[in-house]
């Protein structure tokens, strides 16, 4: 079956103002809204569109994380994914572990395409997609802003520092998504009801034969230094004066 695997991550919602805990051991997550990582939502939307165009028959969504991640998997099912895979893992899941777990799912599911967001907005690592592609020994196209899939290849437009780069890649492959690839659909209430009946399988890292290694110790979280409050000027002339005084003109 022509299948797309989409990796998603549960993160603190995009709109939440992040606060560092007073004891510097993390950021405040109690009572904070959690969501599907926005870049992963774009990845899922793209997978659904490919399926709707007839380019795939099934969209499977997967995550690696604690029990609460099921909420985000249900959201993904409500968006339109056909089934979900939850690899249960507690504590910090480093990108190498996430990629290793996804590789095991790839071996089981044999997808023609794996789609993920280019980075998660919590740890801003931006590693999992590339690591998966490396371990799988398959092509990667990161930062995709356009994706055209044929039976055996894909043409991907990537947002790079120089502008837009186009690559041709053989399938199967890993593609990570950038902001302008698409605008994800809103979930409708009937779809949320329907999603409750869709299959959601739970697996453990041990079942997959993946070791839950944590190699990087998170020592301390701090709020970033604040900039000093500046001055207000009333017009262009005062602005130019102020810049001259600072030696900037």
């Amino acid at each position: 079956m022509k299948r797309i695997l989409v990796g998603i991550k549960r993160v603190v919602d995009y709109n939440v103002r992040i606060r560092v805990k007073p004891d510097n051991t993390g950021v405040v997550t109690d009572g904070v809204k959690m969501s599907v990582n926005p870049f992963d939502e774009i990845a899922l939307e793209e997978a659904l569109r490919i399926k709707e165009r007839g380019g795939a028959e099934e969209v499977v969504v997967a995550t690696v994380g604690p029990a609460e991640c099921q909420q985000q998997l249900r959201t993904a099912l409500a968006m339109g994914a056909d089934r979900a895979l939850h690899v249960v893992a507690d504590g910090i899941v480093e990108p190498l572990v996430a990629a290793r777990a996804l590789l095991k799912l790839v071996e089981r599911e044999q997808p023609l395409l794996v789609l993920l967001g280019k980075q998660a907005i919590d740890d801003d690592n931006g590693q999992t997609g590339q690591m998966l592609a490396a371990m799988w020994n398959r092509p990667q196209a990161t930062y995709a802003s356009k994706l055209e899939v044929t039976d055996t290849t894909a043409r991907v437009t990537r947002e790079v520092d120089a502008g837009l780069e186009t690559l041709d890649i053989d399938l199967p492959a890993v593609v990570t998504t950038d902001l302008r690839l698409n605008e994800p659909r809103y979930v409708k209430l009937p779809d949320i009801m329907k999603a409750k009946k869709k299959p959601l399988d739970t697996l453990s890292l041990a079942e997959l034969g993946v070791e839950p290694r944590q190699q990087l110790k998170l020592v301390r979280f701090e709020a970033p230094p604040q900039r000093q409050k500046g001055i207000r000027v009333k017009d262009a002339a005062e602005l130019v004066e102020a810049l001259k005084k600072k030696g900037l003109l």
Binding site: D124, Q215, V219, F221, E222
Partner: peptide, 21 residues
């Protein structure tokens, strides 16, 4: 073995220890 990096879009600065890596 100690590095710093911004996370959460720069809303927090994380110190990471890499001892043993």
């Amino acid at each position: 073995t100690r590095f710093r990096r911004p996370i959460f879009a720069g809303n927090a600065i994380l110190t990471v220890d890499t001892t043993g890596v």
